[in-house]
Amino acid sequence: MIKNAFKRALWVYHINTGGCNGCDIEIIAALTPRYDAERFGIKLVGSPRHADVLLVTGPVTAKMEDKLKRVYEQTPDPKVVIAVGNCGASTGVFHNSYSIRGPIDKIIPVDVYVPGCPPRPEAIIHGIAKAWEKLEGKK
């Protein structure tokens, strides 16, 4: 029973660390009636304290570096981090820019990468499904 506690009850907190907003729109698209993430119990929450999953987008700008760390620390354990989009995984189109401190896995540990610029909503839901497996393994 404990093993399956996170299955189908993941609450997601979304933080943009300086991306172009394309991924964020796709994340919202995953919640629309067409993709309906809520049928898997996935819910977007407003506070990192309520979250199990951090959906991080963007290449982490200098301004966002310590905020990202703080949000990570504010999230109660057990948690997983998903890097959504190419620029989160490798700084993508922002590569070698003067203001970039990323990619995300240089700042906080990342468990799941969802590639794409931006990825499709199905891919994001798939990434969250991978996060379940990770969480069950962590318990």
Binding site: F6, R8, P33, D36, R39, G41, D52
Partner: peptide, 24 residues
Amino acid sequence: QARVGPPLVQPFRDIMKLMLKETI
């Protein structure tokens, strides 16, 4: 809203999950 929606036991799952999480 023309969605399928969560199963009826969803609130029980949410509660169980919250009980297992760290309380900050």
